[in-house]
Simulated scan of single mutants.
Amino acid sequence: MKSGFMKKIGFFINTLSKSGGTERVTSVLANALAEVDCEVEVLCMFKSGESFYKLDSRVVVRYLTEKPDGTLKDYFSVLRSLIKNTKHLDYIIGVGMDLCIFTVPLKLFNKVKVIGWEHFNLTVKGPVVSLARHLGIRFADRIVTLTQKDFSDYKKKTDKVVCIYNPTTIDMPPVTTYDNKTLLCVGRLTYQKGFDMMLDIWAEVYKKYHDWKLIIVGNGEDEEALKDQTERLGIGVSVEFVKATKEITKYYATASVYAMTSRYEGLPLVLIEAQSAGLPLIAFNCETGPKEVVEDGYNGFLIPAFDKAAFSEKLQQLMADESLREKMGKQSIINSGKFSRNSIVKKWTEILV
């Protein structure tokens, strides 16, 4: 963005206090835009705690309500606060297309331009998000998707769509040795992320590879159920659960393979992070997301969705062959270039004109 061409940008999000990928990439992009002389604010719907991830001192955080959470009953109070707090902005970016039910009505009151930022995919449906997507397609100034699949689907309905990947969000030297016998998974401990399937796969793999361990980093409502599952499967000694942490790079640095068994995704930030760390990847080829990062047979393996036997077979192939892990890990580093922070920020600044 040219010097002297300062834009006032607002990100509208439920909260920054969670440790998820949505919150992480919002923080990274807000910081990056502040560095190129945008005036950046993050407008949080609810005041549920401080930002989990570090924000640049130039990024202003505003809370639209004092409540830690809410329901649809809070719609009009949140909207009134949003109208009041966006009059001075050039752009408001709704972090998730569901938030178009708030951001699109702003166009009736303010001159702010509205960007809808799709963080799931069009197969994730429901009455609220379906209405919000309809409003975004009809009235938003731009829609940003994370994947080429969603771009193609939106393109059938509007020309205002552009695909911009999530950027790499970690800074660390890539892995140089692949002899640590550790398989890493990172994510919220919820049904979406499919850790129950990962544990089933691990129970089969562990029969042959007793010298390996599985580390799962994350928080979530399924934590106790997943821990109970490890005990039922008799693999508790080989599985370590770690709370969500800001020091995630140390876990990437000591792993040799990264695995993902999600049932659905937008564009999984953890795959992008693991790739930039130089890890070989293995993931289910769910509807959208993993195929944008994993090139099957190049920097890892894409497994037919939810085929646990095929996943186990390819995972064991990686675990058995250190030279293959190294080869695919180095190719992960090469592939990570298209997710570089500079190139992604440049694409954002091109639409913030």
Rank of each mutant, 00 (worst) to 15 (best):
V217I: 14
M260R: 09
L315A: 01
E287F: 15
N121R: 07
E35F: 06
L267E: 04
W117S: 15
G194A: 05
D171G: 10
P304A: 05
D321H: 14
T26M: 05
T176M: 09
G218Q: 03
R62W: 01
H210F: 04
V124Q: 12
F301Y: 15
S312E: 13
A253K: 15
A132T: 07
P304W: 07
L64A: 02
E240C: 04
G329N: 05
R62V: 09
E118D: 13
V186K: 01
K291L: 05
Q316V: 04
M328W: 12
K111W: 08
T71L: 12
E23R: 03
E66T: 15
N166C: 06
D211C: 03
G337W: 04
T147M: 01
I351Y: 02
K156C: 09
N219V: 02
A132Y: 10
S130K: 14
K84S: 03
G278Q: 01
V205E: 04
G49E: 06
M260N: 09
G49Q: 07
V28I: 15
Y258N: 05
H210E: 12
I170D: 06
T254E: 15
N342C: 07
I101P: 00
H210W: 04
S262N: 06
M6Q: 13
G218K: 06
Y206P: 02
T86L: 13
N121V: 00
V59S: 11
K87G: 11
P173R: 10
K111A: 10
P280E: 00
S81V: 07
I143W: 04
T145R: 01
K113S: 11
S152T: 11
I216V: 15
K67R: 13
R62I: 09
K213C: 04
L183I: 15
L281D: 00
G236A: 14
A274T: 08
I9F: 12
E350W: 10
L131R: 15
K308E: 14
P174L: 03
I92P: 12
D196P: 00
G234L: 05
S262V: 00
I83M: 10
G266S: 06
L43I: 13
P304Q: 02
E313R: 10
H88M: 11
V161N: 01
K246Q: 12
D321V: 07
C100Y: 02
P173A: 09
L135W: 13
F284C: 07
C38P: 02
F284V: 06
V25F: 14
D153K: 12
E41I: 13
N299Y: 12
K243L: 06
D159P: 11
Y53A: 08
V112F: 12
I303H: 03
V114M: 09
K2R: 10
I115T: 03
K227E: 09
V162T: 15
V293H: 02
I333F: 05
N14I: 13
T182Q: 13
Y63E: 11
V294S: 03
A283C: 09
C286Q: 07
W212A: 01
V294E: 01
L267S: 05
N299S: 11
L43G: 02
L55C: 11
V353L: 13
R80D: 06
E223G: 01
S57N: 14
R62H: 14
V112G: 00
P127W: 08
F301Q: 01
V162W: 06
V162M: 09
S238I: 00
Q229C: 02
L184E: 00
